[in-house]
């Protein structure tokens, strides 16, 4: 992840909990987690997490935790889409860090660097998983785990993805799907297996206990865990 050099202020939009009103979550009223500041690749973005000053209702810690599904809205050819992603890494930035201790010559330049981060902030790595259409009623439909073809923009808002949407995105013909898995493992690197396990954990909690997909998730998790252990030379 790279450090961000810009940031945007958000103030007056109302934030409500997405699932507060029951059935179909209103994708517009989902908690805003932050905004895109840069990218490392087509599928790997960096978002700066909102703070008190940036909006009315900044995300709580548990709403932007590791493994949290997120989405970014995109209108393509007149149809509103959700580009789905997951927080797979975070990083703290403290601009003061470099200023303590003996100073070197470059210190003088600091004040001339435009857009230099002036305050402490949290950056979140967002890996893209796939896309879905946003229907009239605000629900998502036609989820696909194919690689998203569209690019996000700097300043795009990253929304907290409600459980119901997460489940919809992961369900194709009643069959649980994590078809993005190999791509995600690739992007997330060392934390790849952990982010997948975190996603699986969430899905498990969202599905009924006797759902046949529970056992499928178990097998997938076992495989991921085992592969990770193998890669780390444990077995």
């Amino acid at each position: 992840m790279q450090r961000s050099t810009t940031r945007q202020q958000y103030g007056d939009e109302a934030m409500t909990d997405a699932l507060a009103d029951g059935d179909s979550p209103d994708l517009d009223s989902c908690v805003r987690i932050g905004s895109i500041v840069s990218s490392n690749s087509h599928l790997d973005y960096v978002a700066e997490v909102y703070k008190e000053r940036d909006c009315d209702r900044p995300p709580e810690l548990h709403e932007r935790e590791f493994g949290q599904p997120v989405f970014i809205k995109k209108t393509v050819n007149g149809t509103e889409h959700a580009v789905m992603g997951v927080i797979y890494d975070t990083q703290l930035v403290d601009p003061d860090q470099g200023r303590t201790g003996p100073r070197l010559a470059q210190d003088d330049q600091a004040q001339f660097t435009p857009g230099y981060i002036e305050e402490r902030t949290t950056l979140a790595g967002v890996a893209l998983l796939g896309t879905a259409e946003i229907a009239e009623d605000g629900a998502i439909q036609e989820p696909t785990h194919q690689m998203p073809r569209w690019t996000l923009e700097v300043e795009d808002t990253v929304f907290h993805c409600p459980d119901q949407v997460t489940v919809s995105f992961h369900t194709v013909d009643d069959q649980i799907q994590l078809a993005y898995m190999d791509r995600l493992l690739d992007i997330a690197g060392d934390l790849g297996s952990e982010v997948i396990v975190a996603l699986i954990d969430r899905l498990r909690g969202m599905l009924p206990e006797d759902d046949p997909n529970q056992r499928v998730l178990d097998v997938v998790e076992q495989n991921v865990q085992w592969q990770a252990r193998e890669q780390r030379g444990m077995v």
């Binding site: 649980i176 799907q177 994590l178 078809a179 898995m181 056992r215 499928v216 998730l217 097998v219």
Partner: peptide
């Protein structure tokens, strides 16, 4: 398909494969 897909006799390997696309 990796043999790990066979971990649960009640879950067919093709189901696991379908899940992972």
């Amino acid at each position: 398909l990796p043999e790990g897909f066979l971990a649960d006799p009640e879950v067919g390997p093709e189901t696991v494969a379908a899940t992972l696309g």
